[in-house]
Simulated assay, not measured.
Amino acid sequence: MVFSPAMILIGLTGGVATGKSTVALMFRRLGAMVIDADRLARQVVTPGTPAWRKIRKAFGTGILNPDGTVDRCALGAVVFRDRAKRRMLENIVHPFVAREQRRLTKAATTRNPKVVVIYDVPLLFETGIDRRVDYTIVVTAAQSTQLMRLRQRNGLNRADALRRIQSQMPLDRKARRANWILDGSDSPQQLHTAVRALYKSLKRLA
Rank of each mutant, 00 (worst) to 15 (best):
P47Y: 12
G62I: 13
P50C: 13
A37I: 03
R81L: 13
N179S: 13
E126G: 07
P188L: 12
R28S: 12
F27E: 06
A77I: 05
D36C: 01
L75Y: 04
R29E: 15
G19F: 02
P122A: 12
V16G: 09
G11A: 09
T46P: 02
Q101P: 00
L182F: 09
R132T: 14
V45E: 01
L64Q: 10
R149A: 08
L64W: 08
R72I: 09
D67R: 07
L191M: 08
L9T: 08
P113S: 14
L124T: 03
Y119D: 06
L202Q: 01
L162V: 08
T110G: 09
L104H: 08
A51R: 05
R132V: 06
M88C: 10
V78Q: 05
A24H: 02
W52M: 09
V34Q: 00
P50H: 09
L156N: 04
R111K: 15
L182A: 04
R153F: 11
G76A: 13
A37D: 00
L40C: 03
L156M: 15
I8P: 11
N112M: 07
M88A: 13
G19W: 00
D71S: 15
I137A: 03
R131Q: 15
T61P: 07
P188N: 12
R99Y: 10
R42Q: 12
A58M: 10
A206T: 14
V116F: 02
R158E: 15
A51P: 09
L75E: 08
A206F: 03
Q189W: 10
V117L: 10
Y199I: 02
T136M: 08
A51H: 05
R176Y: 06
L156A: 11
G31I: 06
I35H: 01
S201Y: 01
R163H: 04
G15P: 06
V78H: 00
A175C: 05
G68D: 08
S201F: 04
P188F: 04
G15F: 02
K174Y: 06
D172S: 14
R177N: 12
S201G: 14
H192E: 15
A24R: 03
T61F: 09
H94D: 02
A6P: 00
S167R: 02
G60W: 07
A194C: 11
A159R: 13
A41C: 07
V93P: 00
L104I: 15
L171A: 03
Q143W: 05
D36N: 08
N157S: 15
T140F: 04
I165Q: 12
I10Y: 06
T110N: 13
F96S: 12
K174W: 05
L40T: 01
L75P: 08
V116Q: 02
T105K: 06
H192P: 00
A178T: 09
L171Y: 00
T110I: 15
Y199V: 07
M26R: 07
R164D: 10
R83A: 14
A51G: 12
W52K: 02
R131T: 14
M26W: 01
I55T: 04
I181R: 06
